[in-house]
């Protein structure tokens, strides 16, 4: 059994969590097979930066609203 399948089998959780982790593992493994360690890193950084960028954009907008309109 390849390491890819072995890890996929090892991942646990309910159906949703399993699907989610399974997809993430597929992305990680594909990234690794394409570009090695950097491939893994870029998959994860891309995933998290998608979240952090959205978060930071919302935070910036709300902070501006708070300081421009919610303060004297």
């Amino acid at each position: 059994m390849s390491y890819r399948d072995a890890v996929a089998k090892r991942i646990e959780g309910d159906r949703d969590a399993l699907n989610r982790k399974g997809r993430l593992w597929e992305e990680i493994a594909s990234g690794y097979e394409k570009e090695g360690q950097n491939g893994v890193k870029s998959v994860l950084v891309k995933r998290s930066s998608g979240i952090t960028q959205k978060f930071n954009r919302l935070l910036r907008d709300l902070e501006r609203k708070l300081w421009d309109r919610g303060n004297d």
Binding site: G36, Q37, V40, S48
Partner: peptide, 15 residues
């Protein structure tokens, strides 16, 4: 090596 490399790649992401 693959397992170790993947773990290194995960750590390098510093999430």
């Amino acid at each position: 090596s693959d397992h170790r490399n993947i773990l290194t790649g995960i750590e390098a992401a510093r999430l």
